[in-house]
Design a protein around this nucleic acid. Sequence first.
DNA 1: CAAATATACCTAAAACTCTTAGGTATCAAA
DNA 2: TTTGATACCTAAGAGTTTTAGGTATATTTG
Lengths: 112, 112
Amino acid sequence: MKSNSLFKGSLNTIILTLLKQNDRMYGYEITQKVKEMTSSDLIITEGALYPALHKLEGDGLLTVSIEKVGNRNRKYYQLTENGKTETVNRLNDLKDFIEQMQLILNTKLATQ
Amino acid sequence: MKSNSLFKGSLNTIILTLLKQNDRMYGYEITQKVKEMTSSDLIITEGALYPALHKLEGDGLLTVSIEKVGNRNRKYYQLTENGKTETVNRLNDLKDFIEQMQLILNTKLATQ
DNA sequence: CAAATATACCTAAAACTCTTAGGTATCAAA
DNA sequence: TTTGATACCTAAGAGTTTTAGGTATATTTG
């Protein structure tokens, strides 16, 4: 099918945008959501996700709150104000990237 | 403006597609072409380009022919048959990536 | 004409991101 | 009771790009 690898930087954009859409989510939920939305075409590995979440938190773009569900801890992540700003920036970067690729490749890359 | 970084894997796709469009090009020419086409928004650094060209050659996707211009050597690169096939694959991967991102981000990323 | 800029190739260290391959533990279903 | 799902995590390695050099010829500019 396709190389199931992400493009550089797209993971952070995915995380930030999902949190913008859903207010708060926990890590495992993000992996399942992406899997579901792309019909299992895109798999976010946990080895990539958790370090990315920790870095976004360290950069002040996310905050965490731990919630006990049954006997297990869930870590819910939420956008900070900086996080909301950065989400807009990342989306603009992605749009710029696609526009640049269209210029170079001389091709419409996205349908409609 | 924007983070002037490429997205992972996009450099190879750019190289291959430019060679498909222009039959043969040399390294420096590729950097200038991309700069010109994107109004200096996207800069291909030589530190990324030359190793990428060597790898594509090693993988059998490109062939080289050296041409003396004045007193300097230019290395012209050209797609092999495998290279032509791989170019189509890379373009399809990029289109798939954009479609997946549109699904996840719930946004039209490319105009038209 | 000298010095700066452009052309044209190159490499190596470091940074960064993601994959692979583990690990722990709880909970539900077979 | 054992498998699979849920839920977190880390570390080694692979791969790509940036940064920061290096060499040399050709052209432009002050």
